[in-house]
Design a protein around this nucleic acid. Sequence first.
DNA 1: AAATCAATTTAGGATAACCTAAATTTTAAG
DNA 2: CTTAAAATTTAGGTTATCCTAAATTGATTT
Lengths: 224, 224
Amino acid sequence: MTKKQAATQSVQDYLKRIYELTEDGAPASTNDLARELNIKPASVTGMIQKLAAEKPALVEYQKHQGVTLTKAGRKAALEVIRHHRLLEAWLVRTLGYSWDEVHEEAERLEHVISEDFEMRIAAAMGHPDRDPHGELIPTAELVMPTEESIPLSALRPTQTGIVQCVKAADTELLRFLEGLGLIPGAEIEIKEYSPFDHNLTVKIGRKTTVLGLNITSKIFIEES
Amino acid sequence: MTKKQAATQSVQDYLKRIYELTEDGAPASTNDLARELNIKPASVTGMIQKLAAEKPALVEYQKHQGVTLTKAGRKAALEVIRHHRLLEAWLVRTLGYSWDEVHEEAERLEHVISEDFEMRIAAAMGHPDRDPHGELIPTAELVMPTEESIPLSALRPTQTGIVQCVKAADTELLRFLEGLGLIPGAEIEIKEYSPFDHNLTVKIGRKTTVLGLNITSKIFIEES
DNA sequence: AAATCAATTTAGGATAACCTAAATTTTAAG
DNA sequence: CTTAAAATTTAGGTTATCCTAAATTGATTT
């Protein structure tokens, strides 16, 4: 049977964070997880040991070496991420939430919606492939599509493209970027590059702005 | 400060059930609560004692005499009930749930939505005063409107009216009633009354059906 | 290789919300 | 008014998840 015991909310949160922290290929450390989850490292160790000991293990764990997800753990994580991103899209589209407001609400709802609810909102939106920030939504089969876009920081003068994704969670930053028009779908063109500080002068729509690396590394572009 | 510590999901469930069980004015017994909440009576006693001991008490409790809600407890209960009923209405209207499907989903969502979410869905629906079953929705100020309609079982031949509310939770029964057209808004007329078994012959729209007391006591009518 | 510091784990507790089994109280019946 | 049955409460456990403080391990520096 593929039937897994409903993971608790805590477990779902652990798996989601582990997924995010291991996207770069490296295991997630106890400390990093503790910071992301706002709990103490000692508690993380305990939970991780439990997850590694489950009948079908959800994580791979070696003392002092960090954790990674097993196939089962990854599926469970993608389920939560799919819920979260579909919810963000749904809240923005049907209830007029702005992209800087949805996160918290989705964070709570993601743990309690049914598969039926998931299917209904996905269908109602025409099965979107990205959330309001442009983050890819795992498929119903729990496969994460591959991201084709590249960071804005990798572009150089005369290159043009379209903003696909803004990887930021901070409300202030999101509002700032929205003010600049730097949102998914925006057309951009690189005007200047400053090799010393990595600043890029970017034309967004009709406005032109200078952006630092801390911003350009978070914006993902599909070149055109 | 009126700021109450976020009640846990369990506490919210207890308060909601106590509200329902005490609508008739009488205190709710430990046993009844246990049955409604699907937990053991011993556990109910423990929780009730805790709720009665809270800084602002949520329930009034006397050993062996049952519980009632305090003002604070009632407000908290009405908040949950408002969430539940608004959610049911919203799920039916925006996601095509049928009235026999919404309960479970709303039961889980009611505990996690924000006040902001509550306001948004209420506004999006034009601040409805009843849920899909016709149950009254507490106001944003947490006041339960007074129910004016009377049970179908109280009507007698030649009286006519409109169905306002169907107080039933069972999926099968709800589907059956829907099949009969016995849903909020339906026009009905009493044709016959059988004093021995309390059966009523009722014309619903153009169909005529004989209904027993177990049904007629659950349908509420506004006489016309 | 020894010392030191940071990261991690272990040990021992706390809290919330259940449970079972045993005791007690209330209610109802002789 | 005594007693059996029903309802309720107490006592003692369990599980999940978190915490603090102490111990340990790994990494870095001398």
